[in-house]
Nucleic acid binder design. Structure first.
Lengths: 228, 228
DNA sequence: GTAAAAAGTTGCTACACATCAATGTTGTGA
DNA sequence: TCACAACATTGATGTGTAGCAACTTTTTAC
């Protein structure tokens, strides 16, 4: 990781109004937000480490995941600009309860936790936005909980494909994750992720060419996801 | 459910300062908090229904659970006084993402969402408390996610027993849930919940007499939970 | 451009777990 | 107190899924 510029961060300005507000407040330089660049695979934040900044993803794709005691991971989310990264940890807990690492080269915006707290009181709209983002994260974790414990292979993969299709806002998309990671996103093994993808291709539900996936029969995917 | 008194609610006053604040603010009667009584098994809030009140559990035990499309449940938490019930939904989402129902007769305190929003701005300490409770809920859901997807029977049950022991703050406790619900709490079938309990008893890890469980070897439980 | 590493694919096997069934036990309401 | 329902327990069985191994394809790095 390297710091690319001290302040500015126009790319996430539209979202959170942090920068306008920070200017209004006339904050000293050391409290101003910073942009940081990460290489592919680099870890942006680590489970159990202390939260010192709120982080917003400005460019690139990242995965949010938790790792179990046996070394296997579960991917909770794929993060896109301009998602919050530090969000779930900022106010609730002093340390991260998950990892985030870069799937592609990424640029993030780091905002000191002290400044966030000032803004917290200064701008109520920002606060409500933060809480809403928080809430929808919880809802999506709940969904994953159900999916992992009750659905079987095909239902889990179907759900992941629907998720990815919504994430990329298109029926055709290029995966930024490997088959192993698709397995971790679905809570299944790499091998079974491959097997189910092949099945879906053979059944005409999806088109499959390496990392490029095209959803051909979304209705069927929805159905598969629902029945498990 | 029945409304037992219009305001007051001394039992949760120590926790959130809502009532002191509401008096300071001189709120009209219709906005004052209300106490509500529920019978055993009665549902306190329902998945997908609209959130109109923040709810605090004042007396009794309740289970927070989500239900899947196949009718099977996952119990997220056992709630004790004075846990928040509506918490995860209050600011994040307009509707509940889970169910809560009474395991024993319960008394709750309902606070109109409008009043919560007023308090939100009026008392910053309350706000921070709320966010911290929110955060620890998220952390516990993450833990469950890992447990469900990576541990096997004995590890899951061990984790549930540790959870219950901490919940009741004692090595010996009387379950307010059935074996089926212990299964739902652990993400396994009722039959296997029974089998593992019997195993643990035969191995001298726990004492077992119907609903009364005594943890005899907490260290072993911790170990079992960790290795999965 | 070539070698090495990473990612992807397929078949086979073992087993952990859910499910079914039968039966015993406890609790509850008339 | 009796009858019925809910809860608890144990054994037998089928199957969904992880893990292993062998192999091919793609990507990465020098």
């Amino acid at each position: 990781m390297r710091i690319v510029e001290k302040a500015g961060c126009e790319s996430c300005q539209h979202k959170c109004d942090i920068f306008l507000t920070s200017k209004e407040m006339g904050l000293e330089d050391s409290l101003q937000p910073r942009k940081v660049a990460y290489k592919k695979y680099e870890q942006i934040c680590r489970q159990n480490s202390i939260v010192t900044h709120a982080i917003i993803l400005c460019e690139g794709n990242a995965k949010m995941y938790i790792e179990g005691s046996n070394g296997k991971n579960i991917i909770l989310n794929i993060l896109m600009p301009s998602n919050y990264i530090g969000l779930l940890a900022v106010f609730g807990s002093p340390s991260y309860s998950y990892n985030v690492s870069a799937l592609t080269p990424c640029v993030t915006c780091h905002i000191g936790i002290e400044m966030i707290k000032k803004l917290y009181y200064h701008n109520h709209n920002y606060l409500i936005q933060l809480n809403q983002a928080f809430g929808s994260s919880v809802a999506s974790i709940m969904k994953k909980l159900l999916s992992l414990s009750q659905k079987q292979l095909r239902g889990k993969v179907a759900e992941s494909l629907i998720y990815l299709s919504q994430l990329y806002e298109s029926h055709a998309f290029t995966l930024t994750i490997t088959r192993k990671e698709l397995g971790e996103l679905s809570g299944i093994s790499e091998e079974n992720a491959v097997r189910v993808l092949t099945e879906f291709k053979n059944e005409g539900i999806i088109g499959l060419h390496g990392k490029v996936i095209e959803v051909l029969d979304m209705e069927m995917l929805q159905k598969l996801s629902l029945i498990g």
